[in-house]
């Protein structure tokens, strides 16, 4: 079962929030919790009934405070390292995918992503870079990118998925592809 990592920052301490989440997600496991910050994992299937965007709406209206929720797949852990919660302070109240989060942070201050860039350089290979460049140059059309590299379309798909597995960044999204290029040129 695929796990989803969720980082949650709330405006003030609230043990009730944590109690609610435990009841809500049977598969939930805490990775870290402090007074205003929680990092937990759940099975992806757990959010089918209540998507995180809807959870955010419920939390804000019931607890009546600000929340920032960031979610990503397991791959992102190697990319972001341990100091990720410091970044959450810079995001507004809301729900953000990993790609949206990085994009947002990059826009605020590219330098703040230097640590992440460093990790990325170690995670992706020269062949990943070639894949990404071809995909970008083909305007995100995997079939065209595959033709240019003389590989099968499925191979291209596999390579793109592999990059997501390793980095947590879905490069098939605009923001994901943008940020992975931006990080490389930082």
């Amino acid at each position: 079962m695929q796990k989803l990592h969720v980082h949650m920052q709330q405006a003030s301490e609230h043990t009730m929030v944590k109690a609610l989440l435990i009841d809500l997600y049977p598969s939930m496991e805490f990775v870290e919790k402090t007074k205003t910050y929680t990092h937990f994992t759940i099975d992806k299937a757990d959010i089918i009934e209540l998507p995180l965007e809807s959870l955010y709406d419920l939390l804000v209206t019931d607890f009546e405070m600000r929340f920032t929720l960031v979610f990503h797949t397991i791959g992102a852990n190697k990319l972001i390292g341990t100091a990720f919660k410091a970044h959450l302070n810079k995001l507004p109240s809301g729900t953000f995918s990993f790609e949206e989060t990085l994009f947002h942070l990059y826009k605020l201050n590219p330098k703040s992503l230097e640590g992440i860039k460093h990790n990325l350089d170690a995670l992706i290979t020269q062949s990943d870079r070639t894949t990404l460049l071809a995909f970008g140059n083909a305007n995100m059309k995997a079939t065209n990118a595959a033709k240019r590299l003389f590989i099968h379309r499925n191979t291209m798909q596999y390579r793109l998925d592999h990059i997501q597995e390793v980095t947590g960044i879905d490069v098939k999204t605009f923001k994901g592809l943008f940020i992975i290029h931006a990080l490389q040129t930082l």
């Binding site: 609610l20 009841d23 809500l24 209540l50 809807s54 959870l55 209206t61 009546e64 405070m65």
Partner: peptide, 28 residues
């Protein structure tokens, strides 16, 4: 803060807590 606005909102997705009864959803 939302707390001091005293506003109630109904969403398009009609988000409800799946693990709670109707009563508890309303009482929460």
């Amino acid at each position: 803060a939302p707390k001091d606005r005293d506003i109630a909102m109904v969403f398009q997705s009609y988000a409800l807590y799946p693990h709670m009864t109707v009563y508890d959803n309303m009482a929460f």
